[in-house]
Simulated assay, not measured.
Amino acid sequence: MPALPPLSEPEPVLPDRQAVVAALRAAGCVFAEDEARLLLSSAGTPAELAVMVERRAAGLPLEQVLGWAEFRGLRIAVDPGVFVPRRRTEFLAGEAARLARAGAVVVDLCCGSGAVGAALAAEVERPLLYAVDIDPAAVACARRNLAAAGGVVREGDLYEPLPAELRGRVDVLVANAPYVPTDAVGLLPAEARDHEPRTALDGGHDGLDILRRVTARAPDWLAPGGHLLFETGERQAAAAVDAVTRAGLRARVAASAELHATVVVGTATPFS
């Protein structure tokens, strides 16, 4: 009599949603229901889900656990240790897209994952896109996110790695530079201060050290009538406007109550 085939192991079953919700709630996740839904839809196996839940419960940002973040309708890859794009920064990207014409030369400084650049590539027709970050991990992540758009991503300090031929040609210069005052970094949620690079958070004594550097050199790179845009805190807006004005740019402030976002816009004098 032929031997019977061995019994196949039953397929493991993913834990039910409520069990995942309970584990996330026990870890202090405020939006446990929403996070459970995302984790369950992303995990391929029970073992993978268990690791994801464990990492999230340990305090890693949800986006780093999932490997992506949603930003202006796009799925942006987010690697471990890379700054997570905030929803409020969608306002910065939208203001920049509104000012960019077809074929615009666009530079995204302090690009992080490249979320702002990716949004501009999706919303502006045929942009010539450059992105820069000082963090090697962010540069690698941004290259993945901007590859399809043909974006050039370079590693270095602000304007340093940009090609010299861009001087005086940039139509839209976006900088999502760090603007948290040094003394306030320790007050940030643990998932930010423990799992995101300090260079993406710490803006110096009043939060504007990096933005002042960006602003001071912006006129050298902007085309006539070109625009500098950066995100800042509501209480920092007046000082940021002063820095923009001192650099010789016309300054204005745009704000979104819905997203709790404040953006300062500096415009270079156009040719008469």
Rank of each mutant, 00 (worst) to 15 (best):
G151P: 10
R144E: 14
R167V: 02
R98A: 15
C141G: 06
G151R: 07
A148N: 05
G94R: 11
P181R: 01
N176L: 00
G94I: 10
G114I: 11
L146R: 03
A97Q: 11
D171T: 05
G112S: 11
P181Q: 01
R101T: 14
A119R: 03
V153M: 11
R101K: 14
A118L: 05
A177S: 12
R98W: 12
D171Y: 01
V107M: 09
V180T: 03
V153Q: 10
G117R: 03
A115T: 12
P181I: 00
L128S: 14
L128G: 10
R126K: 14
V153S: 09
A102S: 15
P181N: 02
N145M: 04
A148Y: 06
D157T: 13
C110A: 11
L173E: 07
E125M: 10
P178A: 02
A104L: 11
V152C: 10
R126E: 15
Y179C: 05
A119S: 15
L120Y: 09
G112L: 06
I134F: 03
P161N: 09
R126S: 15
E123W: 11
E95G: 00
E125T: 15
I134E: 14
V153T: 05
V105N: 10
A102Y: 04
G114E: 11
G117L: 04
D135T: 12
V107Q: 08
A119Q: 07
A118C: 08
V153F: 03
A164C: 00
R98M: 11
P163E: 03
V170E: 01
L120W: 11
G114P: 08
A175M: 01
A138H: 12
A142Y: 04
E160P: 01
P161A: 09
A177Y: 02
P163A: 05
A104V: 12
A115P: 08
A177W: 03
L162S: 02
A148K: 13
A119V: 02
A175H: 02
E160R: 15
A97H: 12
R143Y: 07
G168E: 06
A100W: 07
L166K: 00
A147P: 09
G156T: 09
E160H: 13
A164N: 01
A115W: 04
R144D: 08
L158M: 12
R167W: 02
C141Y: 00
L129P: 13
V180L: 00
L120C: 13
Y130P: 10
